[in-house]
Design a protein around this nucleic acid. Sequence first.
DNA 1: TGTTAAGCGAGACGGTACGTCGGGTCTTGAG
DNA 2: CTCAAGACCCGACGTACCGTCTCGCTTAACA
Lengths: 187, 187, 187, 187
Amino acid sequence: MDKVLGRPRDDAAGPALLSAARRLVSERGYQRVSIQNLLDEAGVGRQTLYRRWPSKAELVLDAFLDSAGRIPAVTEGPILEVLTRFLTHLFANLNEDGPALRSLMASAQEDAKFLASFRERFLQPRAKIVKSFLEQAVKRRELNENFDVDTASDMIHGAFWYRMLLGRPLDAAFATKLTTAVLKVTE
Amino acid sequence: MDKVLGRPRDDAAGPALLSAARRLVSERGYQRVSIQNLLDEAGVGRQTLYRRWPSKAELVLDAFLDSAGRIPAVTEGPILEVLTRFLTHLFANLNEDGPALRSLMASAQEDAKFLASFRERFLQPRAKIVKSFLEQAVKRRELNENFDVDTASDMIHGAFWYRMLLGRPLDAAFATKLTTAVLKVTE
Amino acid sequence: MDKVLGRPRDDAAGPALLSAARRLVSERGYQRVSIQNLLDEAGVGRQTLYRRWPSKAELVLDAFLDSAGRIPAVTEGPILEVLTRFLTHLFANLNEDGPALRSLMASAQEDAKFLASFRERFLQPRAKIVKSFLEQAVKRRELNENFDVDTASDMIHGAFWYRMLLGRPLDAAFATKLTTAVLKVTE
Amino acid sequence: MDKVLGRPRDDAAGPALLSAARRLVSERGYQRVSIQNLLDEAGVGRQTLYRRWPSKAELVLDAFLDSAGRIPAVTEGPILEVLTRFLTHLFANLNEDGPALRSLMASAQEDAKFLASFRERFLQPRAKIVKSFLEQAVKRRELNENFDVDTASDMIHGAFWYRMLLGRPLDAAFATKLTTAVLKVTE
DNA sequence: TGTTAAGCGAGACGGTACGTCGGGTCTTGAG
DNA sequence: CTCAAGACCCGACGTACCGTCTCGCTTAACA
């Protein structure tokens, strides 16, 4: 099974492209990195990239996919603390990756296929974490059973993306204000 | 004192470009409209555009600037109604202009100067309307005096931009949910 | 050696451009043919032209390089006849290619590098033919051994270019007058 | 008659443009001087130029018209001397004006109307001088009565233009060689 | 003295061409 | 079948000129 004819794929090529993407996009910004730049940096041929990703956007998405992904999703403690801690860590990571994420969101606006990828692979997983926090809090009666988890999630992610896209700072203070405001809803 | 040397600019050229931009971008989408398309549609020379706007993005921003700007900012009635009414109208207008606005937000992510324009000329004026609603409600004790107007505004605009950028629907139902959630804060 | 990395150049593209250049320049004249016209006619991309030639002038030079090059350089017979026959054929060919050659000479006046190309690749080879005729005639004592071959060549080519650049006719009659005058020098 | 309504033309504007043309074209070369450069240099409006000349080429032609025009057409002495003296002076003047004249000849190749001007106003007058030398020499039996004045003139001017257009030197030595060769014809 | 009309500098106008750049596809020979 | 290399077609971009036009002002001759 799994007959593999011909020369096997170079296992190093993919990672080389991912790290090239991370490095160059962090340095210069998404738009100012051309595909040729990535190929040169990774020492890789053109087709080798297109064999693995359909576009620059998808490659860069993969390169930054684990951004803010290693956030310790500690569930213990009151929901206010849990959420604030999560957002604080999230925001801290954005100092580095924020610019790339903004560019990815921008690319998604002109390419429906990429928007779908971006939602499914990046945004929804992060939304689910927040929703699960809230759902657990509802379950253990910390939040009212009528609490609108979906809208709350939209408001949290919306507010943070909105500020990020506008180039406004995201810090611990804002994390606190945000969670406080969202959770007050059920007070 | 406002020296007016040389042939005066053609008063019709600017509007012609603006309406060309509005028309073409609405039809085909921002990315699929080239500068040449705009020139042809407006019947105008290349320099005439570059004399007035530094980029396609700035022109299109101007073209869609009054989008959702004619929304009846009626202040009367309870804040919940006022805000819901405002957002419902706003969302209704976005069926037409939404795609263009998404493209403008995207352009702003790769061009700091344009982001500044976009914030000052488009986003902030709209944010001010919402904030003034909330401030008036605070003043007349409809909302608690500790109500965090700024964060509430970020959550409202954030949630709506977030949904729009993700291609999710913006309708009256969401307007209601959103205002309800935000205002519950002071209950 | 002669490393051949990457996709080889399309052997058809160059000839397609050359024949497009020949066809269009002959029809409309050099100035009225844009680079885009050539690309469209040849069914070729922009870079494909710029990869092969640095300018329109160089391409057109190549296209007309063999113009008047297939002239039967028959050496037999008295020098007067040889030269007259050569010039008559040369002039006959210029009905078609004259306009292009005039444009090339014009282009050469504003571009030193192109002038060098034009001299080396077009003018000097043609000058050599005439000089060799005269040198052979000197060698076989048909012309005086003091005969100034270089100046004679300048006068012949000068007279013909001068008339051509001035839009005056070049016919068999002029060929005869010219050779007669030049050769009388040693009578 | 000659009713002159309206503001009279500024007598200084024409000369200002002529001298601007002379100065700039001598410095940078014809092609690298734009019409705007000429206007700026002359401190003159666009329409003021176009009211006087139909094109840059015509203006520059006027600017360099008297080039080599002040050559002392001394008729005395043997034709060889007369002609050599004339050409030597002519060539001496070309060190300065040669580049401009080459550009004018180039412009004439793409513009039939300008070619006519250039012939009539520049080339023919100079050709006439040479022809009159030769005709006088024929009249006084210094040259054979069958001497082909027209062809000789073409060869002289042709040879000198040819060398000039090819960027080859024009000096007293060449003047001598040229006249010697041409006049040998009747020996 | 006031009117008329052309000239003036300035600069905007519609066009056209240019050379560069980037994107995604295709095609070599080598591995 | 993959690899690096690099050619292919396409099309957008911003710049630079060109020759025409239009503004408010100036300069005379005419009324």
